[in-house]
Amino acid sequence: MNIEKNTISVQFINRPNRFQAYVKLNNEIIMVHVPNTGRCKEILIPGCTVILREENGVNRKTKYDLIAAYKGDKLINIDSQIPNKVVHEALIQKKIKKLKRFTNIEREKNYGNSRFDFKLTDSKGGIYYLEVKGVTYEEDGKAKFPDAPTDRGRKHLIELIDVKNEGMNAGVMFVLQMDNMKSFSPYDSMDYKFGEALRKAKESQVDIFAYECNVAEKFITISNEIDVIL
């Protein structure tokens, strides 16, 4: 998907809290919004180059969103709204092999007390619930999730198991918001309970996908499926 709004590259200064950061733009220090509640500490390092997307909301406190950062030569998108958008695009374009048969794509659909990112339906009425997780953490080309403990993420996995137990299909897709990754794994040392839940989901025949993305300052799109190592 293309990023239609204006983007600029600037120098990152610091991030005092989850939602705010300071950057240097035209020799002026300004505050920007960070659309990601994860830690991103290994990415947002003082002095690194980051990408801002210009926003023009009337009630906004900041003019820009910080949507990506360079980790060395690698550009990593950190916008938490992006994964669902690129998956939606990939589903429409039939880029996800196992999900090609689904012709009806619905977003943010409830199932019982749960809400999943996608509800997919095929021509025979078969239903598939899909949850999407954005991944920004990598170490030596190996992507991991989560970069902070997530009870909510673990709850989603348990709910997907419930879907399987009710006789429907379910999956979780990890969208690696970067390219040239070797593999994906749960980040057990950060949140072992999430890793346990992911392995239990696998045992319950919940599909686990990991796709990396082609990332540039003005676009991001799903590219290759990556090995999942549990």
Rank of each mutant, 00 (worst) to 15 (best):
Q93E: 10
M31W: 01
P149Q: 11
V215K: 04
N180T: 08
I220V: 08
V10F: 05
K41L: 12
A197Q: 05
K95P: 01
N26K: 15
N169Q: 11
V87C: 04
L25Q: 15
V87G: 00
S80L: 13
E54A: 13
R152E: 12
N36P: 05
E89T: 07
Y192K: 15
F19V: 06
N104W: 07
G134M: 09
N84I: 03
V86E: 02
E159R: 06
V23Q: 14
D162S: 12
I29S: 09
D151K: 13
P16C: 05
N14M: 10
D73H: 13
D117M: 05
A210L: 08
K144S: 09
D73Q: 15
G125D: 06
K218E: 07
M178R: 09
A170S: 08
G38I: 04
L66W: 12
K85A: 09
F145C: 07
F116M: 02
E55N: 04
K63A: 03
R18W: 07
F145L: 07
Q81D: 14
G167W: 01
Q93M: 08
I92R: 11
V58M: 14
E166Y: 05
A170H: 06
T136F: 04
V34K: 04
N113M: 08
Y111D: 06
F116N: 03
P83A: 03
H156P: 03
Y187N: 15
K124Q: 15
K71G: 02
L66A: 11
E138P: 04
R15V: 01
T37N: 14
K63P: 01
Q177E: 06
I13F: 15
D179E: 13
Y128W: 15
K144A: 12
A201Y: 01
G141C: 10
G171E: 02
T121Q: 10
D140I: 03
Y70M: 11
F194E: 03
L198F: 00
T62F: 12
M173T: 06
A143V: 05
I43R: 10
A170G: 06
K94T: 04
I45H: 14
V10Y: 10
K155C: 07
R154F: 01
G125E: 08
P35I: 05
L157T: 01
G38W: 13
L120E: 07
Y111R: 14
I29Y: 03
S183R: 01
E28L: 11
T37R: 12
Y64K: 13
P35Q: 03
D151R: 14
E106V: 09
N77E: 06
V215P: 02
K41M: 13
R101L: 13
P16F: 02
C40S: 15
E106L: 14
C213W: 00
T49K: 15
V87H: 00
